[in-house]
Amino acid sequence: MKYLARTREGRPLVGDEDGFCPLSAADPGLESVRDALPKAAAGTLAGPESATADRIAPDDVAFGPPLDRFGKLWGIGLNYLEHAGDLEEDRPEEPASFLKPPSVLTGPGGPIRLPPTTQSDRVTAEAELAVVMGRECRSVDEESVDDVIAGFLPVIDMTAEDVLQRNPRFLTRAKSYDTFLVVGPAIAVPEEPMDLTDVRVRTIVNDEVAAENAVRNMAFPPREIVSFHSEVMTLRPGDLFSTGTPGAEPIEPGDEVRSVVESIGTVEASVTR
């Protein structure tokens, strides 16, 4: 597995399990992580083993968001069958998708800033596996999706549940407060198409596992989600699909939230108001 990341100051990095080095040291033609996304999708991304600089241990890197600017931010609701049952919702016959604005984004560590209690007094956090697009595409079949995906990312999504419960048409507002999407520190770039079936996703709050499930229990797996939405609109490098949560947990100021996506990565964030 290779990883694409940036430091908190914005310096682009490429890495593996042993550490990270400047992206340009591995490929002088790449000036940013965004420039590297098409190569990640094509399987031609150079790793730190071929770099002219030494690796830096992951624990010695202060990570920021892996991209300075993401594209479209898609979310998928009710995608784990058990979670839909918990919410007493019927399984959708098509992906229950929605868009979030770029202003929701925050990097590893957060913080997640809850809105004033006069606007929402019940916000939940949700661990999710995200897909990052690497190449522009339209009308891609599922068998070809790996050719356009750059990699995968752990994220924490948030919902102002009391806002949503007042009216389902308030979904966009309920999902769109500032800092309501925490992106992981590194995009995981598989060396070859990855079997996601047994990958487990965990929502953890204050070191307690609040929800856990495997990708195999999604109603719509990640590749199907990408293919489906490529029939709706053109997808471009940096677009992100957050593929749904195994379960949500209410959060309060002072909490620590963690999204763990096995084989992909982990992201944490503190909660404040």
Results as ranks from 00 to 15, higher is better:
residue 62 A to K: 03
residue 62 A to C: 07
residue 62 A to S: 05
residue 63 F to R: 03
residue 63 F to N: 02
residue 63 F to W: 03
residue 63 F to Q: 02
residue 64 G to M: 06
residue 64 G to F: 06
residue 64 G to L: 07
residue 64 G to I: 08
residue 65 P to Y: 05
residue 65 P to I: 07
residue 65 P to T: 05
residue 65 P to A: 11
residue 66 P to W: 10
residue 66 P to M: 12
residue 67 L to F: 13
residue 67 L to K: 07
residue 67 L to G: 05
residue 67 L to C: 11
residue 68 D to F: 13
residue 68 D to L: 15
residue 69 R to C: 14
residue 69 R to H: 15
residue 70 F to W: 09
residue 71 G to T: 13
residue 71 G to A: 15
residue 71 G to Y: 13
residue 72 K to A: 11
residue 72 K to F: 13
residue 72 K to I: 13
residue 72 K to S: 12
residue 73 L to M: 04
residue 73 L to Y: 02
residue 73 L to W: 04
residue 73 L to K: 04
residue 74 W to S: 01
residue 74 W to P: 01
residue 75 G to W: 01
residue 75 G to H: 00
residue 75 G to P: 00
residue 76 I to M: 02
residue 76 I to Y: 00
residue 76 I to H: 01
residue 77 G to L: 01
residue 77 G to Q: 00
residue 77 G to K: 00
residue 78 L to I: 02
residue 78 L to N: 01
residue 78 L to K: 01
residue 78 L to A: 02
residue 78 L to M: 03
residue 78 L to F: 02
residue 79 N to M: 02
residue 79 N to S: 02
residue 79 N to I: 04
residue 80 Y to D: 01
residue 80 Y to P: 07
residue 80 Y to Q: 05
residue 81 L to W: 13
residue 81 L to T: 09
residue 81 L to A: 15
residue 82 E to P: 10
residue 82 E to G: 15
residue 83 H to T: 14
residue 83 H to E: 02
residue 83 H to W: 09
residue 84 A to P: 04
residue 84 A to C: 07
residue 84 A to K: 04
residue 84 A to F: 04
residue 84 A to W: 03
residue 85 G to S: 09
residue 85 G to W: 04
residue 85 G to M: 11
residue 85 G to V: 08
residue 85 G to Y: 07
residue 86 D to M: 13
residue 86 D to L: 07
residue 86 D to G: 06
residue 87 L to T: 03
residue 87 L to Y: 03
residue 87 L to M: 10
residue 87 L to D: 01
residue 88 E to W: 12
residue 88 E to D: 14
residue 88 E to Y: 11
residue 89 E to P: 05
residue 89 E to K: 06
residue 89 E to T: 06
residue 90 D to A: 12
residue 90 D to Q: 06
residue 90 D to F: 08
residue 91 R to N: 08
residue 91 R to Q: 15
residue 91 R to T: 14
